[in-house]
Structures are given as C-alpha cells and as structure tokens.
Computed example of a mutant assay.
Amino acid sequence: MIDGIITKGIGGFYYVKTDEVIYECRARGKFRKEQITPLVGDKVKITIDSSTKQGVIEEIIKRDTEFIRPPVANVNQAIIVFAVKKPDPNLVLLDRFLVMAENEDVDVVVCFNKIDLDEKYLLELKKIYTCAGYPVVSTSVKNKIGIDTFKDILRDKITVFAGPSGVGKSSLLNETQPNLALKTGEISEKNKRGKHTTRHVELLELDFGGWVLDTPGFSSLNLDFIEEDQLQFLFREFVPYIGSCKFSGCKHLNEPKCAIKEAVLHNTINKSRYESYIQLLKEINQKRRY
C-alpha cells in the first residue's frame, strides 16, 4: 500500500497526494458501514489499479485533530482571518471560530487583513485579542504589509485558513504563493459581504514548506457539540479566574461575586469577549432545550 494525504474531496472522489503523484481514489465501502467519512487532511493508505491508475482508500490513519466546520483533519494550526473593514468584522463570529479552534486544541493566530482601510480600529482589535492571549498578525495585500510575517507563520505547518467571505483569504494566499492562483471575490456593494469564491475545502501545498486549507466562507458556526460548562474553558483569558468565583458552579451570568465579571469591570477581560461568551452560552442553552 502507498501512503498519501487527501488534498480534496468532490462527489465521492478523493484526491490523494503521494510522494510522486496525485491519485483519484474511491473509499472502501467499509468506511460507510463504520460511519467514517474520509476528510481532507486525512493521512491514508491506498492501493492503485495498474490498468486505470485510479486508487482505493484502504486505511485512514488515526486523526490528531478533526474540525466539524470546516470538515478537515490533522490540522495543527488555525489562522482566523477578518478584515478591519469591507466587510466590518463581526467579533462574535470571530470568537466562534476561536472557540472551535480551542476545542480542537490547535495553535491559533488571528489575522486582521485590509489594515490600510482603518489603522485606528486595527489598534483596538489588536488590543482585544492580544490581551485574550492570541498572536495577532496585521496584513494588507494592497500595500504588501505583513506578508513575510504571514509566510513565516505558515511555514512547515498544516494550517486551516478560515474566516467569512470577502475578508481577503484567497488574496492573502495568492500573495504568499502566486502560483496557487486562487479565485478572489468582490465585495457586494449592497450589503458589503463577500461573494463566495471557494466552493470546497482543499489542501494546498506550499513551495516553502507546509500545507494550507483554503476553506469556504461561513456566516454562522454551529456550536451544538460544546457542553454548557465547557464553554468557559474555551475563552483563554477566563481560565485563570475559573474556580475563584463565590459559587463553584458559577456560569458568570447573574451570580454575585463572580471573578470573571469582576475582571470585566477592571478591564482585564475585554467586554466584547465577555459579551460573546454570554451570547454563545445562551445559544447553546436554547439548542439543548430542543
């Protein structure tokens, strides 16, 4: 059997990159019986039909990580990309992405793109997320700012590259490695949202070492799989205060002498991050009722 990695999956076909070539493969029926769906990023073992040069996925190596949305495996780094303007950043959506990445225990970098459009707001955004404990990179494809730093972050990692449509993910990747030739979208003047340009999840190999997953844009992310009492641990800056509240089962909502609410009052936890926590917690509770 030949070792490879799934770089793309479309219509029941999986494209597996080996040392020498990419093979179009089908998956064995046993995976369907076991309710296992091969994912982009899966390390697999395949056999090749010498007459057709097509392959069959025989084995999926145990995954180190698995994202639900985007559906990818074995990522060891997530870069969450938002624009400072056009479209304006939805910070609750950004925090959803961060919660998902924290849940998978991967390294996370926050990237603010299009920084030439609003440098003042950039400083505010950087403060929020550096204080929350995240590395932040600032980029502008138009002015060629931060591209080398961005490249260094990608080097020798398997990176999921995520964020809503229109923030410039594909433009950033194209600037990093022009021969990727990814489609870039325009911003709709009507609602300032990006047009979807990436139609499927695809693993892209980088000439300077590493892989990136260019993923479709999302307007919402479902956090049904996260338990109510688990959410607080997925906000990095909350963790030092957990256990210091008056009540052991404190949800950090209306309880008195809550260490996290006091940290918000003293600006050691940013108010927008706390508000995201409250909104996400309420959504999880509402879904649980049904």
Rank of each mutant, 00 (worst) to 15 (best):
P70Y: 11
N90C: 06
D152A: 06
E119Q: 13
F112A: 02
V141C: 10
A73C: 12
I115E: 00
K85E: 15
L93Y: 01
D95A: 07
K151D: 04
A78R: 07
G166A: 15
K86P: 08
P87G: 05
K126Y: 07
K114L: 07
D156F: 13
I80V: 15
K157S: 14
Y121H: 11
K169N: 07
V106G: 09
D118Q: 06
D88K: 12
I153E: 03
S165M: 11
Q77K: 15
R69L: 12
L91W: 03
G133P: 04
Q177G: 02
F150N: 03
L125Q: 00
R96P: 09
V106P: 10
I61L: 13
V137R: 02
N74P: 07
V137T: 01
D95T: 01
G133I: 04
T130P: 06
L117P: 00
I128Q: 02
F112L: 04
C131R: 14
P71Q: 11
V92R: 13
V99H: 01
K126D: 00
N113Y: 03
K157A: 13
K142Q: 13
L122C: 06
D148I: 10
V81S: 02
G146N: 12
D116G: 10
P70F: 14
I80P: 07
D105W: 03
A78C: 13
S138F: 07
G133F: 03
D105P: 05
Y134D: 00
